[in-house]
Amino acid sequence: MGTALSVLHVRVWRGTESGEYQEFQVPRLESQTVLDVVTHIQRKLDPTLSYRFACRVGMCGSCAMTVNGKARWTCRTHVASVSDEERLEIGPLRNLPVIKDLVTDMAPFFDKWAAAKGQFRGSATRNDDFARVSPESRQRRLVDESIECIGCGVCYSSCDVVTWKPDYLGPAALTRAWTLVNDVRDVDQRERLTAVAGDAGCHACHTQMTCTERCPKKLSPTAGIAGLKRAVLSAALKGEI
């Protein structure tokens, strides 16, 4: 641990859906991340603080929280880039049930991936040769644009449509559906388009683009949702769904 540069004033959410922010003072260190701050509080100041993390390097998607009002992956968010005059407000993700402190129940989030037919189903067996998909093909390139999702829930937490319409599948589940719509090996295309065409599907998006603004992987769920809208329209015109 390095030498403290100054003191950070950190307000951390304590409780469940109801609760309050508790203030802590944390030594400000060089190159400090928001996750470092939360870890310091739990290990040095109050061991009862609950939060979630695993990889610490932006791969697992488990440490997302609301930092100064915006959803962020805390392990890759430097305090320097978000603190407002050495002040931080750290809360749980929005639009998800709060289990305790900074931990949300991610079940509704992932249930929607399933509802959007986010599972791959191919037709090949283990006796078949590898499917050959050219990296240059149009569809494979479209998959590339959204395949890097780490399932952190930042987009879902940021989306007003999810708040206003709790059934809405949300940016992450629809992005997952979009990668599979472009997967030429998948055989559930009709079911998937039907799943995302309903009231709670892609047409509910208001193009506020907060998902695209906040995605830590710089993906654009808005682009995927626009793609789904076109795919649904085309399938409907052909009488397929």
């Binding site: 009002g69 749980p92 007003d160």
Partner: peptide, 8 residues
């Protein structure tokens, strides 16, 4: 919990 102006 809901987002406020900062998120929007």
């Amino acid at each position: 919990m809901r987002n406020d102006f900062r998120a929007r």
